[in-house]
Design a protein around this nucleic acid. Structure first.
Ligand code: SF4
Ligand code: SF4
Lengths: 150, 150
DNA sequence: GTATATTAAGATAAAATAGTCTTAATACCA
DNA sequence: TGGTATTAAGACTATTTTATCTTAATATAC
């Protein structure tokens, strides 16, 4: 898989946060219930997003987490980098040590093009856009109530 | 990472086999030495390629492994599927259960394009082409003797 | 201040992946 | 026939990732 499970959880949760208009704090319990992710595990993942300053957290009653900046200022890549690191940029899916443009492997010519596309997509797509897309899909699919729970 | 380490080892080894003109058997020891991969681990990985009928193996003196068919008839995808399965096609990097065209997640529109590109590349690129590319790169880089060891 | 709600942190466990080691099976060769 | 080279198979270990559970810290409200 391209992204770790932790990273997918982080994405799903941050998109869900972005899709709630409410700009107060949302409890992690509410998120974990809605996304069907273990509360404690999600807590840890979101702690990393807080450390990375993508989220703000607040303890106690009416506490929870919220986006640290507007949803359109947090990119897909921001979330991926916070959890999985920058392997996508500095390493490579093929993960050969020390490779790159100056020291390419036999797949570099073919792969680097695709890799660049993925990086660009991740940089251009942000939580606001993803959340909008998510709502659009849900409105389409309302009849069947079937949708992938990103 | 997109591919497991086992899968990367399988790729590196099969490309190396393809790049040896010799159509006799090559010992796994020779491959593991040249690629700096644990002999026993590589043995296991290549056993899977043998089971998948991408390689043929032969025991005893002058034994080893060789490609089961011409290098241009074994695709990148063949190797990936043999080791990592068909997750790339049937699952997804985002790995949400039961998603797909009929039940897309909020990233599907953006991601599925890139995913298709990757699948196409893997299907079109074969061991012969990769091996040729590998040799080309080595001839370029001979001065510095630096290259990524795919 | 005390009880309650909440995130933070850390200890532990389970599962998946990666790696090592030993033995077995098979084939060649002398 | 016996010795050697080689892959096959399986047991075992180590590491990483994922998940759970417990306790601590912090904030609120009464
Ligand atoms: S494709 Fe490029 S970045 Fe990836 S392993 Fe090969 S040389 Fe490195
Ligand atoms: S991008 Fe498409 S295939 Fe991947 S998880 Fe989303 S809906 Fe599924």
């Amino acid at each position: 898989m391209l992204l770790s499970k932790s990273c997918i959880y982080a994405l799903r949760a941050s998109v869900l946060i972005a899709s709630k208009k409410n700009d107060g704090f949302i409890t992690i319990r509410e998120l974990s219930d809605e996304l069907n992710i273990s509360f404690h595990f999600l807590t840890k993942v979101l702690q990393e997003l807080t450390k990375a300053e993508l989220l703000e957290s607040y303890k106690g009653p009416n506490g929870g987490v919220k986006l640290a900046r507007p949803a359109n200022k947090i990119t897909f890549m921001d979330v991926v980098e916070s959890i999985d690191g920058d392997y996508m940029i500095n390493e490579c899916v093929l993960g050969l040590p020390g490779c790159g443009v100056m020291k390419p492997c036999a797949l570099h010519d073919q792969w680097s093009v695709l890799k660049t596309d993925i990086i660009n997509m991740m940089n251009e797509y942000n939580l606001e856009a993803i959340a909008k897309n998510r709502e659009l899909q849900r409105s389409f699919e309302r009849k069947s109530a079937q949708f992938a729970n990103l």
